[in-house]
Computed example of a mutant assay.
Amino acid sequence: MALTQPLQIFDAVPQRARPISRNNVIPFRAPRVLLPVTLPGRTEAASRELLRTLLYSPLGVYVVRTEIVRGNVLVHFDIAPDDLDCTMHTLIATLPEAIIGQLRRRGASAEVR
């Protein structure tokens, strides 16, 4: 027993749709926060290894700035507040020696040097 299906014929010329005007939609950017983290390293090689570990972890996508100062690696994460819990757990699991700084709103980046 064969099932019959209707044959649909499509035009060779695509139909042009009218552009939809959406003037009532205002795109809001999701609020972001900066999370400074210090990775203490005893030597320059150890600092670079900690940074490499961080950048190749899932947290590497959040890193917006890195700096090596006196053997320590200063890292700034740009994250959404909704991702904060997961980010903290992953950071502690990946690099337990990390020193976590104070959260700042992304607009307050002038305070971050």
Results as ranks from 00 to 15, higher is better:
L91V: 06
L35T: 13
I68N: 04
L39I: 06
M1L: 15
A45Y: 05
D82W: 02
T94E: 03
N24V: 06
L51R: 03
G41R: 00
C86Q: 10
A2T: 15
A108R: 13
P31Q: 07
T66A: 09
V112E: 13
P96Y: 07
I100S: 15
Y56E: 15
R104G: 11
G41E: 01
L35S: 13
L74M: 06
N23D: 15
A98L: 07
R52H: 09
D85R: 15
T87C: 09
V63I: 02
A12C: 08
E67Y: 05
R106V: 01
I99S: 02
V112Q: 10
M1P: 15
D78E: 13
L74V: 08
E111I: 00
C86V: 15
P31C: 13
I9Q: 09
R52I: 00
A108F: 14
I99W: 04
T53V: 15
I20Q: 08
S109W: 00
D85T: 15
R105N: 15
T43W: 03
M88Y: 08
R32E: 02
R104I: 09
V69S: 11
L39M: 14
G71W: 00
Q5D: 04
A30K: 13
V25I: 13
D78F: 05
Q15A: 14
L103D: 09
I9V: 10
G101N: 10
L55C: 06
L59P: 11
Q5N: 01
A30Y: 05
T38V: 14
L103I: 13
G107P: 04
L103M: 14
Y56P: 04
P58S: 00
D85S: 07
G107V: 08
E49S: 03
A2Y: 13
V37E: 10
R22K: 14
I92E: 09
V64K: 08
E49M: 03
M1Q: 15
T38H: 03
V25M: 07
V112F: 06
Y56C: 01
A110M: 08
G101Y: 09
T43Q: 04
I68R: 01
E97F: 06
F28V: 08
N72E: 09
L95S: 08
M1R: 12
R104W: 11
D78H: 07
E44A: 15
T4N: 09
T4G: 13
H76K: 09
